[in-house]
Design a protein around this nucleic acid. Structure first.
Length: 438
RNA sequence: GGAGGUGUGGCCGAGUGGUUUAAGGCAGCAGUCUUGAAAACUGCCGUAGGGGUGACUCUACCGUGAGUUCGAAUCUCACCGCCUCCGCCA
């Protein structure tokens, strides 16, 4: 959420910046509501002040044993009038709030302007793209060839966009997550966190998924209750990312200055309805309703957030370097950034079968955008509460890392070499190969 | 699922209808004293928002939401969290 003061004082500049994100702020409607709000709020408060004084007089008179009937009849009318003003004000304020919750974050000045993916800027590349002396297969062909990846069973159990892994592949998947967690905890100073996978509406509003992106989420109700017909709110939502759980740790909190920065890491499943992506990435593990991710979150002092963003992206890159997977880092342009981000770097890993780079991590500085929604603050050196800055990044998406390993480490005979750093997590196993006779 | 208890500022804690402007304490900040620090003493010290160029002023907020009342931290109802016990359960 943006600071409403900013909209009151500098509306033109703000709307211009929002336009670069393909968001068009409802200027007329906002101005109209603001004008009414101002007028009605003043009148309401005036009435309240009159009522308060009168009530005090009644109390005073009664304590002296005087007659109060004259004041009582006078104040009685006031009550009805006040009620109308209050209802009116409440309605206007909730409409303004609705507008505010819908507005995306302002892009940072260093973010390139652009309308979509094609305007993102590459800022660096790392690693050597493997040259194969055979036709590189994609991860589905590799996994199914090894009898370790089973989309048919997953479809039977659940449906499309689910997967089932077995044996060495399931273990490799676990090894990847363990390796990522250990690296971030032991080398990058993160606090390991186990979080709920089901969260409430307030949490999703805090990080910006709600109220705008409800259709991207999965909803859960206890005991098979329905909620749509009787207009109840859902009990829980499945997290689309651990960013929600980790960032909301500080919702409605005032954090001590000396405890900053907070750095959390969690390995969780993520659940996404993928409502807007029918027909996109339908093959393989790239786009699933359920996937695992190791998520990194920083809660920092506002002066530190851009330093923290660089740290965050380098923490994510470290994983790819350790696994020797080639990648490039992109700065997302204004038109391609997520709702809550002021600046985002994407890491894209090389996938030989597609002969292209695909997103494997996204690291964002949300500045005070989420903190304002969450009322997440710290006590500054003058003792005053001030909004924190929040950052989040994948470190990394586990499923896509598995895809990258299968494709980049594939051999001519259909086997896959296990990256060296993962072998300790695999009981020393150095290759995934088809079991004899199967 | 059943029974009982409980929720007040950053923290602890008093407050059962009317000068509550939420007592008192802790923590924090400033000062006096001191070579310096501690102690002691003195003062300041919640959040959000509105109006005003400004000194200032007004409003709301005691878990959340409704209600009763001229007036609610205080009374009523619902919900949520936490604690204790019973049942069930991994």
């Amino acid at each position: 959420m943006l600071d409403i003061q900013l909209l009151r004082t500098d509306l033109n500049q703000v709307t211009r910046k929002l336009n670069t994100r393909n968001y068009h702020f409802p200027v007329d409607r906002f101005n109209h509501l603001e004008a009414r709000r101002k007028k009605i709020q003043t009148q309401t408060q005036e009435l309240q002040a009159r009522r308060n004084t009168a009530s005090k007089q009644i109390g005073l008179a009664k304590s002296k044993g005087e007659d109060t009937s004259a004041i009582l009849t006078e104040v009685a009318q006031l009550g009805d009038e006040l009620k109308q003003f209050q209802d009116n004000l409440e309605q206007i304020q909730s409409e303004l709030q609705k507008i505010m919750l819908d507005v995306p974050n302002l892009p940072h000045n260093s973010v390139p302007e652009g309308t979509g993916e094609e305007d993102n800027q590459e800022i660096r590349r790392w690693g050597k793209i493997p040259a194969f002396e055979f036709e590189a297969k994609d991860h589905v062909a590799i996994g199914e060839g090894l009898n370790l990846l089973d989309f048919e069973s997953a479809a039977k159990l659940s449906g499309a966009r689910f997967s089932l892994m077995k044996d060495g592949l399931a273990r490799l998947h676990r090894a990847i997550a363990q390796f990522m967690l250990d690296t971030h905890i032991q080398e990058h100073g993160y606090t390991e966190t186990y979080t709920p996978y089901l969260v409430n509406r307030d949490s999703l509003q805090g990080t910006g998924q709600l109220p705008k992106f409800e259709e991207d989420l999965f909803v859960v109700n206890a005991g098979g209750k329905t909620f749509t017909e009787n207009n109840q709110t859902p009990d829980y939502y499945l997290i689309p990312t651990a960013e929600v759980s980790l960032t909301n740790i500080v919702r409605n909190e005032i954090v001590a200055l000396k405890s900053l920065p907070l750095k959390f890491v969690a390995h969780t499943p993520c659940f996404r309805s993928e409502a807007g992506s029918y027909g996109k990435d339908t093959r393989g593990l790239i786009r699933q309703h359920q996937f695992d991710k190791v998520e990194l979150v920083h809660i920092v002092h506002p002066d530190e957030s851009y330093t923290a963003l660089e740290e965050l992206i380098s923490n994510a890159e470290k994983i790819l370097q350790e696994l020797d997977l080639p990648y490039r880092v992109m700065t997302l342009c204004t038109g391609d950034m997520g709702f809550s981000a002021a600046k985002t770097y994407d890491i894209e890993v090389w996938l030989p079968a597609q002969k292209t780079y695909r997103e494997i991590s996204s690291c964002s500085n949300c500045e005070s955008f989420q903190a304002r929604r969450m009322q997440a603050r710290f006590r500054n050196k003058n003792g005053k509460p001030e909004l924190l800055h929040t950052l989040n990044g994948s470190g990394l998406a586990v499923g896509r890392t598995l895809v990258a390993i299968l494709e980049n480490y594939q051999n001519a005979d259909g086997s896959v070499t296990v990256p060296e750093r993962l072998r300790p997590y695999m009981n020393g196993l150095d290759q995934l190969r088809i079991a004899g006779g199967q």
